[in-house]
Design a protein around this nucleic acid. Structure first.
Lengths: 221, 221
DNA sequence: TTTTGTGAACTAGTTCACAGCT
DNA sequence: AGCTGTGAACTAGTTCACAAAA
């Protein structure tokens, strides 16, 4: 083990909780930047957006010394740094697997483009869908074209929006095509090989968590 | 049949991490039940679905003594109990705010109905949408009808799928209509009064977390 | 025997509080 | 003075390991 020096010591393991907060900080900074604010202290950020000041400082300190003591952080500077840390300066290209209701909706979701992601392709197995476009103009390809399109269009993220029954198979195809990051919307467990990052959004689980809350609340009256 | 489990002094606060796992357990049990398995040990569950046995036992023990020592858990029994704990025996009725791409997709999302949720209404502000149906047959109402429809249709969960700019306002309307649980898909912070549960799904954050991973992976070596 | 339910031990994550820089 | 960056203290969450039950 090497003793770390000034450059940047701790890339061992950054918690997902931290990276999620980086997204939040970035959004706050964008807001401040648009509002013309030039510098902000961790205290100021914390108060305005209901976060903890020490946590903000600690999260940022994993990646460098971005602040100036006695002043705070330069909004534009920190914003640029965060975009770089999150890899948003690379304009990542995204494919969506499954041109059903959800897949089509995600393909045209404005929030993605806004933050620097580009949805470049939809994939489906149904012949009647292949060759058409989403409302927003994203091409629907046959899933058999996946490997080729991933290569030619330099796709680095796949969003899985297929029925549960197909999810496992589709994830295997995506991994085989060389995609290293997957956002999955199907419920249930999915395995990916090491070196591939899978992030799941479980809509049923989210609703069930609300249902649990309602069941509890009603009970204690 | 088992004797009714003894009522227990539930801890003041069950962590969301725990309730999320309850959803997972329920899904596993459904699978086992369909497969005809009658009893399962925490060890068995843990191995088959890559969970930790002690954690399963601890999570379940918050709510009662569902297991039988030396045997394990009766699948059907535990499944029924979990459905009740999660409030899924009450067939909750859900409204979706925003009949855009995402709202319409969610309205027809099969995963919700499957687990006992009923999507009974969509709401929008656009006259050209009001009065129509989603592909799956969910009625689109004018948002000014919200209070009335919530009451007559006994809606207890609202899903917010409107543009960021409208989100805050819509959440206020939903709360004013008496809804106590909200699943929010718009990015950014939203405040709700105490007694109302807000759960947010931040799609941009999810993609950014993948982007971060890709940026890191490329960087090391 | 087997397996639960649970205190104890451990690990991860958050917040405090202050030294040190501007 | 003001504010960051960071070890120390604290809190939450997970896993271990075992006594008690079937």
């Amino acid at each position: 083990m090497k003793p770390p020096n000034k450059a940047r010591p701790l890339p061992d393991q950054i918690s997902e909780l931290t990276t999620n907060r980086l997204s939040i900080y970035l959004r706050c900074l964008a807001e401040l930047d648009v509002a013309g604010v030039e510098t902000i202290s961790s205290q100021g950020l914390a108060e305005q957006f209901k976060l903890n000041a020490a946590q903000i400082r600690k999260d940022l300190a994993y990646f460098g010394e971005f602040g100036v003591r006695g002043v705070g952080y330069f909004v534009k500077d920190l914003r640029r740094n965060l975009r770089q840390i999150l890899g948003l300066d690379r304009n990542l290209r995204v494919a969506i697997m499954g041109a059903g209701n959800l897949g089509m909706a995600l393909a045209d979701y404005p929030g993605f483009r806004q933050e620097g992601f580009e949805i470049v392709a939809l994939f489906d197995v149904l012949n009647e869908k292949v060759g058409h476009l989403s409302r927003g103009g994203v091409n629907i390809y046959d899933v058999r074209q996946l490997k080729k399109v991933v290569k030619t269009d330099r796709i680095s993220i796949a969003v899985v929006a297929v029925p549960v029954s197909a999810a496992e198979h589709v994830v295997r195809q995506v991994v085989a095509a060389g995609v290293k990051a997957i956002l999955n919307f199907s419920p249930g467990p999915l395995a990916v090989p090491p070196g591939v990052k899978l992030k799941s959004v479980d809509l049923t689980q989210s609703l069930e968590s609300l249902s649990f809350f309602l069941a509890r609340e009603g009970a204690d009256s």
